[in-house]
Simulated assay, not measured.
Amino acid sequence: MARPFRHHVDDEILDRAAALFARHGFEQTSVKALADAVGLSKAGLLHHYPTKEALYEAARKVGDAQARRVLDQVAPLPPGPARDRRALELLTDIALDRPGLVALAFRSVTASDAVLDDQDVFVSEVFAVDAADTERQVRVIGALSALAVLSLAANLREEKTAWRPLIIATCSDALASRPNQVEA
Score class of each variant (00 low, 15 high):
3 R>K: 14
4 P>A: 08
4 P>H: 06
6 R>N: 12
6 R>Q: 06
7 H>Y: 15
9 V>W: 00
10 D>A: 14
10 D>L: 14
12 E>Y: 07
14 L>T: 03
16 R>N: 04
16 R>I: 06
17 A>P: 08
18 A>E: 00
20 L>G: 06
21 F>S: 00
23 R>S: 09
25 G>M: 08
25 G>S: 07
26 F>P: 02
26 F>M: 01
27 E>T: 04
28 Q>V: 06
28 Q>L: 11
29 T>A: 03
31 V>T: 12
38 V>W: 02
38 V>P: 08
40 L>D: 05
41 S>Q: 04
41 S>T: 15
48 H>K: 07
54 A>C: 09
63 G>P: 13
63 G>W: 06
63 G>F: 05
65 A>C: 05
69 R>I: 08
71 L>T: 03
72 D>A: 13
73 Q>G: 08
75 A>D: 11
77 L>Q: 09
78 P>E: 13
79 P>A: 14
80 G>P: 07
85 R>Q: 14
86 R>P: 04
87 A>V: 00
89 E>S: 04
92 T>L: 10
94 I>T: 13
96 L>R: 06
96 L>W: 15
96 L>G: 01
100 G>D: 02
101 L>G: 07
101 L>W: 11
102 V>I: 09
105 A>T: 08
106 F>N: 04
107 R>E: 00
107 R>M: 04
107 R>H: 08
109 V>S: 05
110 T>S: 09
114 A>R: 06
117 D>P: 09
117 D>M: 09
118 D>S: 14
122 F>I: 01
126 V>S: 00
126 V>R: 02
129 V>Y: 09
133 D>V: 03
133 D>L: 05
134 T>W: 15
134 T>I: 15
138 V>Q: 14
139 R>G: 01
139 R>F: 03
141 I>W: 12
142 G>T: 09
144 L>G: 03
146 A>K: 14
146 A>S: 12
147 L>M: 14
151 S>F: 13
152 L>T: 10
152 L>W: 10
153 A>R: 15
154 A>W: 14
155 N>E: 12
157 R>D: 12
158 E>V: 13
162 A>R: 09
163 W>Y: 15
163 W>S: 12
168 I>P: 01
169 A>T: 11
170 T>F: 09
171 C>E: 13
178 R>A: 10
178 R>N: 04
179 P>E: 00
179 P>N: 00
182 V>M: 15
182 V>A: 12
183 E>G: 12
184 A>I: 10
